[in-house]
């Protein structure tokens, strides 16, 4: 009789407790990135660009060379890193307050230029680290500290659907929205992240994966209720799926 461990956490994932709140799905996203890099065997030549927000401590949890970018400027920093080191695998890991708000110009132009970088965009519809303020992706009616009566469509506009915008830009090779609320979706997210890195290795262009995630603390919910909200409220507004895949349109 021999006991085998089924769960093999990748070595690049540092074995230490995370600072994230209970039920925060950043941990799952970190693991998926680590697994994708390990599967592709590119850990040694990967350079991560981390953003501002809860994911600022990415370098504590992934044993990679990391550049810390100013708020929202991760795609611009990644552009520089990739152009200086074309052999390296470069990815940014950004939240929605970082990417969709202050970093909107950087992400749009980075995608439009078709930089060979990968962007992992974790969308939890709120500014997590600074205390739950309204983000551009906050859903209509969602209460935050800066819209205590709920986001109003007429006053603050509709939530921005980033994947649809990125997919419409010329340089984008791959753009997909995934969620990590169920086992099935986590496995789908793993495939999407792996594919995004593969596209970068093949030099096809800019790859973008949006991960719908929870923020139980700032949503004022239990982790299980927050996880259910992803399916009941977020996925209907932010539909899952592939928005652009250059290989599929080329028939390759």
């Amino acid at each position: 009789m021999q006991e085998i461990r089924v769960t093999n956490y990748p070595e690049v994932l540092v074995d230490r407790p995370t600072h994230y709140c209970p039920g925060c799905q950043h941990g799952i996203a970190h693991r998926l990135v680590a697994e994708a890099l390990t599967d592709l065997g590119v850990v040694d030549k990967t350079i991560a660009v981390s953003s501002i927000g809860c994911s600022v401590f990415l370098y504590n949890y992934l044993n990679l060379d990391t550049v810390e970018a100013p708020h929202g400027r991760a795609p611009a920093v990644a552009t520089g890193v990739k152009r200086a080191r074309p052999d390296a695998v470069v990815f940014t890991y950004q939240g929605d307050g970082d990417l969709a708000s202050i970093g909107m110009a950087e992400i749009m132009h980075c995608a439009n230029r078709g930089e060979r970088v990968t962007v992992i965009f974790v969308n939890n519809t709120v500014y997590g680290m600074t205390g739950g303020q309204m983000a551009p992706t906050t859903l209509v009616g969602q209460k935050t500290t800066t819209c205590p009566g709920g986001r109003c469509l007429e006053r603050e506009g509709a939530p921005i659907r980033m994947s649809e915008i990125i997919a419409s830009l010329g340089g984008t090779a791959y753009c997909e929205r995934v969620a990590v609320n169920t086992v099935k979706n986590v496995l789908g997210a793993k495939k999407a992240i792996r594919k995004a890195f593969q596209y970068q290795l093949d030099g096809k262009g800019f790859s973008f994966v949006e991960v719908l995630s929870t923020c139980p603390t700032n949503w004022r919910m239990t982790p299980v209720a927050a996880n259910e909200r992803v399916a009941s409220e977020m996925i209907p507004y932010f539909p899952l799926g592939t928005f652009k895949d250059i290989a599929a349109t080329e028939g390759a």
Binding site: I4, T7, Y20, G23, Q25, G27
Partner: peptide
């Protein structure tokens, strides 16, 4: 999310 679980099969 916290890598706190290990599963073993015999």
């Amino acid at each position: 999310p916290d890598f706190a679980i290990h599963v073993f099969k015999t």
